[in-house]
Write a protein that binds this DNA or RNA. Structure first.
Lengths: 157, 157
DNA sequence: GTAATTTAATTGTCAAGGCAACTATCTACA
DNA sequence: TGTAGATAGTTGCCTTGACAATTAAATTAC
């Protein structure tokens, strides 16, 4: 029994890209985390995503941020909690719609984005070594196709 | 101030594949989660990874499983905890090396793998619609290149 | 043969994300 | 007007994963 191999899964196997995508995304997150720390910032990759979105357009609501970053509402809510705790963002109730917050970068938040950006760009470049623009188009096309396929399928399950 | 746009990040932007990879992997995980539930199983995608590895080779140690699944030791330890709790696996101390466990599938674990497999295959096929073998080779080549680039780089940071 | 190092696994802490339940506010419409 | 339904956000619970520290067993070095 022990050490016995069973080949059923291999025979049935289709394109098993999941684990490769998974480990790559995890290593990317890890690399970005370390570079952000090396750059002297105290933010995580996910916090970076939110901060940079605000840097590009300040005063977005949390649901705007959620759409923009492909995150869900509770996750954004908690990331904003952490960012406000660090003094990088502020919540201001929206005048027109009092359910909404507008989220603003503080001067400190703006600083940390500018400090973090080179680390982000550096990590992207390192990850992309040996790959070209055609690869980029292929990668984006394929993963967005997978995304679209699953998105179209999911609602009716 | 409010709603102001800042273009610095766009100008500096390199290939920003991270968020696209990220949202795709999250949707894949979600789709698999739902299919596994629909198939009448009570396992998660990560638990599936461990169970299917054991199905292919029973009696692996936790560090074997960690290598195989690209997970780290604490994560595997906790997943095995959950799987043992559900009665799908059992830990047996290794005779030769008493630090190690050998992890075995129970009959129930074997059943749940066989029940889950069609759901996994189905989800892979749905995600892969409209893509071909050449795309598969491109995807694997590109993401493994990114992985290798970052892995080579990381140690010296 | 004992000491120092390495390895396997566990535990605690934290961040992130998914789900469900909840509050508060806004919109539709009858 | 008032009530039903939709929307914005929060909170609790759970799983995964990263990191650091710890225990116990094995290996290496002296």
């Amino acid at each position: 029994m022990e050490g016995k191999k069973n080949t059923m899964l291999n025979e049935e196997e289709t394109h098993n890209y999941g684990p490769f995508l998974d480990r790559t995304i995890r290593l990317m997150r890890l690399a970005v985390t370390k570079e952000l720390r090396l750059a002297g910032t105290d933010i995580t990759p996910e916090q970076w995503v939110i901060l940079s979105s605000l840097y590009n357009e300040d005063g977005q609501s949390q649901s705007d941020l959620a759409n923009d970053s492909f995150k869900n509402a509770p996750t954004v809510s908690r990331i904003i909690d952490l960012l406000c705790g660090k003094g990088y963002t502020e919540r201001v109730r929206s005048e027109g719609d009092r359910r909404r917050y507008k989220v603003f970068l503080t001067p400190g938040g703006r600083e940390v984005v500018e400090k973090a950006l080179p680390a982000i760009v550096k990590t992207r470049r390192i990850g992309w070594q040996g790959l070209d623009d055609e690869d980029y188009l292929s990668l984006i096309r394929i993963i967005n196709r997978i995304f679209a396929n699953l998105e179209d399928y999911l609602p009716e399950s």
